[in-house]
């Protein structure tokens, strides 16, 4: 991992949407938030199994009060994808 693009700083700040998404990912994936660069993929890089990815989606729905349809799962494969998806949902909503 490069470490040059830290999730908290590179994606809009620790307390903003990006930081909150990273917080959820860190909790669900049992990872340190500061290591979660946006390009990291859940399955390939963070070694999540399918249940863990489903749990992540569930927790993101809880955290942000949004619905994430199963059809969106293909778009949410990395930390950056999750941040982008949630931002889009919140903007659209």
């Amino acid at each position: 991992m490069s470490g040059k693009q830290k999730a908290g700083s590179g994606n809009g700040g620790g307390n903003g949407v990006g930081g909150r998404v990273v917080g959820v990912v860190a909790r669900v994936m049992n990872a340190e938030a500061e290591t979660l660069a946006p390009e990291l993929r859940f399955v390939e890089d963070l070694r999540a199994d399918s249940l863990r990815v489903m749990e992540l989606v569930l927790e993101l729905q809880e955290e942000f009060g949004i619905d994430i349809p199963d059809s969106a799962l293909d778009q949410i494969r990395s930390v950056g994808d999750a941040i982008e998806y949630v931002r889009g949902k919140l903007t659209a909503g």
Binding site: L51, M54, E55, L58, Q61, E62, D67
Partner: peptide, 10 residues
């Protein structure tokens, strides 16, 4: 039902 955990059954 969509808020039931994927870890519920296991």
């Amino acid at each position: 039902p969509r808020r039931v955990s994927p870890y519920f059954i296991p």
